[in-house]
Amino acid sequence: MSDAVKKPDPFPAAGNISDAEREDLRRNGILMTSFEELYNWGRTNSIWPLQFGLACCAIEMIAAATARFDIARFGAEIFRPSPRQADLMIVSGTVTNKMAPQVVRLWNQMPEPKYCIAMGACAISGGPFKQGYNVLKGIDRFIPVDIYIPGCPPRPEALLNGLIELQKKMKGEKLTGPDAARFTRADMPSEFPIPAYGAHDLEPPKNDSVWTPPKPEAKA
């Protein structure tokens, strides 16, 4: 069964040489790569996550780091306690209104290039606790999220799948040109304003430049 329409790859590989040509050259002892590819390859295979477990998903994140699921195969076993040394923030667990300013502060302290994975239903949208007065309905209200991993909690294999998707995304990032990656552009913010504790809710309850609520599709 062949699919007639080839779906566009969401994360195309950088560089202009096709894989067949590359393989041909490699067999002849010539390794060709572009600077972008080399740079991305180095970053992709040594992602250092921030040690940032909030709730139940954190236990599955720790389980992904243990011997059975082994995140070390992907180069990501060094969970850094300090945000200054990390380049991936896996938000695993419910983000409450009380914790949200600290999450944004940690995100601001991470140096570029940095990525965010929202692991679990609570980090994506508030999850089963969405109706709570103290629950932030998704961390993407304040910081930009690259990969969303649904589940409650997602299995460690799902987290590894999300990591692989992030690696694909990182491999496809361009350093120059009109669609260069976010971290190369000076006009894209890398630090976001930290919400303050208000009398009834966070102020502001969401950052409109990062996220706007989905518009319903008008069905005729």
């Binding site: 009380k98 103290n134 504790y197 208000g198 009834h200």
Partner: peptide, 9 residues
């Protein structure tokens, strides 16, 4: 809740 919170939820 945080100290600046005013209500009793």
């Amino acid at each position: 809740m945080w100290d600046e919170f005013k209500d009793h939820p």
